[in-house]
Design a protein around this nucleic acid. Structure first.
Lengths: 208, 208
DNA sequence: CAAATATTGTGATTATATTCACAATATAAA
DNA sequence: TTTATATTGTGAATATAATCACAATATTTG
């Protein structure tokens, strides 16, 4: 069962499982069944068991899954290092909201550098972190060994920033602009766009 | 071809198409081919043509699609009113970033009311909008005829807020918390979670 | 006007993902 | 200890989505 044959849809769900398992642990739960996990995530129990089966056998028949053990296994499977370093491009409203977001640390991510083009921001501190010029990006990213970049700049400047990011050797990008990124091979990006979801909601409320 | 038989994956892409068409219009483009549209969105031309074919014939062989016409058709198909009214629950970092986000207006959405539980915030103005108590939510939402709610409160308070939202008659929810929402029938929610995407990026950079 | 061509639109095919149905089996009960 | 039972794990079946291959046809060219 090589990783490459694992359904993409399965991989996307793994972090959902981790999230729910963390919640259960915070409630001092020790064991959970696929059915309960499914209910709390809006999935089916079969789907969860099948997903897990691609990677091995983690449950105990008749009892369920040891919550801590399963989480540990998923962490190993996903290879999420505990020190995933991020850098942030763009220190506006959204950038600052991200800086204030506590979910990163909980999940083993931390924003280690922030960049902007605005001379009024460069050198200043945001949420305790110094803002660098984008011109320093390459050097800072290499020095701090950062692997993932977040783009939170205005749509218009995304091309320019993308070029800098790629030159810095970054291979993984989380994109908050509305633009679809044109990427060279070997670089992976995911986009976050909630207005798409709003339109979807609007569509369904209209057609139902 | 009843709407119910249209692939879900197709529907999710419709707003991508709209987004790209708006961009083309802003660049004074009149016509676009499925191939170009596909390239700019990272899809295939066949997929775009097939998607559109579920709703009718909008192109012109040999030329392509009239950008304005196609956008107008998609708008009709999706039933996106030009005055989709939103309300926002939670006036923290994230809530304020959303208030400052210009993409809403561009897409025909507008935040018409904001709510919080914090007495220090109630009555104050954020981005020019008065913050109401969540106790007033039902009344305000009914009066302003708001159809969609955004949840941007801390995870711990989501159950309480969800109850208020449902009692207010809201049927569509955009959820920014990490929690999966347990919803009664007839209510639809979409969740925005970028840490999931970070983990996915981390997974792929690790396994590749 | 006829031929060549580019592009759409779509039935058929293939690939991907989900669900079903049930064997395997650890645990609890008798 | 034996039997009953609940739950996992999984091959097979089904459903969903993407891609292929090409017919249809509007436009351009000769």
């Amino acid at each position: 069962m090589p990783y490459s044959k694992i359904p993409n849809a399965t991989i996307k769900r793994l972090s959902l499982y981790r999230k729910q398992l963390r919640r259960l642990i915070s409630e001092d739960r020790e064991v959970v069944q696929s059915q309960e996990l499914a209910d709390s995530l809006g999935l089916t129990s079969t789907q969860i068991r099948k997903d897990l089966s691609y990677f091995g056998k983690f449950g105990c028949r008749k009892k369920g899954y040891d919550v801590n053990l399963l989480l540990a296994n998923l962490r190993k499977i996903m290879g999420v290092a505990t020190d995933n370093k991020l850098c942030l491009f763009g220190c506006g409203n959204l950038g600052n909201a991200l800086l204030g977001y506590k979910g990163f640390e909980q999940r083993g991510f931390s924003i280690e550098a922030i960049f902007d083009t605005d001379l009024n921001k460069i050198g200043k501190f945001f949420h305790g972190k110094r803002c660098y010029s984008v011109n320093q990006a390459k050097e800072v990213i290499k020095r701090k060994n950062i692997k993932i970049a977040i783009i939170a700049v205005p749509d218009e400047t995304v091309d320019e920033i993308l070029e800098i990011i790629i030159l810095s050797g970054i291979k993984s990008i989380l994109n908050f602009t509305q633009r679809h990124l044109q990427l060279p091979g070997g670089i992976m990006a995911r986009s976050v766009d909630f207005t798409d979801k709003l339109e979807l909601l609007s569509y369904f409320s209209h057609t139902k």
